[in-house]
Amino acid sequence: MEEAGQSREEISVQTPSSCPNRVGRKCSLSGTAGLTGREGQVARGSRDDSSPQESCYPLRNMISKSRLKLLAMLTLVLLVMVWYSISREDRYIELFYFPSPEKKEPCLQGEAERKAFKLFGNYSRDQPIFLQLKDYFWVKTPSAYELPYGTKGSEDLLLRVLAITSYSIPESIQSLKCRRCVVVGNGHRLRNSSLGEAINKYDVVIRLNNAPVAGYEGDVGSKTTMRLFYPESAHFNPKEENSPDTLLVLVAFKAMDFHWIETILSDKKRVRKGFWKQPPLIWDVNPKQVRILNPFFMEIAADKLLNLPMQQPRKIKQKPTTGLLAITLALHFCDLVHIAGFGYPDAHNRKQTIHYYEQITLKSMAGSGHNVSQEALAIKRMLEIGAVKNLTFF
Rank of each mutant, 00 (worst) to 15 (best):
S55I: 13
R291I: 07
E155P: 00
A112I: 03
I86C: 09
P16D: 06
C107L: 04
P16T: 01
F117W: 15
R180F: 01
F117C: 01
R47I: 13
D126K: 13
Q311A: 08
Q127F: 08
N210V: 05
E155V: 12
P295T: 08
V182A: 05
K140E: 15
I385D: 03
A43V: 06
I379A: 06
Y356I: 02
L248H: 07
L281C: 06
T361A: 05
E384Y: 04
L78T: 10
V184C: 06
T328I: 07
Y167I: 01
A255V: 07
V23E: 10
F130G: 04
H348P: 09
Y57H: 04
A330R: 03
L74S: 09
M73F: 14
A301G: 06
F98I: 02
E9G: 02
D49H: 12
S172W: 15
L305P: 07
R25N: 07
S100K: 15
Q312T: 01
L336E: 11
K134A: 09
A301T: 07
A198Y: 12
P313E: 00
L329Q: 03
D90K: 12
L59D: 11
V251N: 06
C334H: 08
I199T: 03
I354L: 01
A163G: 09
E358Y: 02
F296Y: 15
G221V: 10
K65C: 00
L362K: 00
I282P: 02
P99M: 13
A378V: 06
Y344W: 13
V388Q: 01
V372Q: 04
H348K: 15
N21L: 05
R179A: 02
G367R: 10
I93F: 11
C27I: 04
Q41F: 03
N61K: 15
Y92C: 08
R270L: 04
R44T: 01
N200L: 09
L70W: 15
K363I: 10
T353W: 05
I354F: 01
S168L: 02
E105I: 07
Y216W: 14
P52F: 02
K140L: 14
Y356L: 07
L159V: 02
P170F: 15
P231V: 03
A112Y: 00
S12D: 10
S266R: 07
L35M: 04
E105Y: 09
K315N: 08
V139Q: 12
Q352D: 13
Q352V: 11
K201F: 14
K273F: 00
L293R: 05
A163P: 05
I261G: 09
Y149C: 14
Y356D: 02
E39F: 07
L59W: 10
L305S: 12
T263W: 11
I206W: 15
R272N: 06
G323S: 13
D346G: 00
S55H: 10
R91L: 15
P287I: 00
A234L: 08
D203R: 15
G386E: 02
F342P: 04
T151M: 09
Y202L: 04
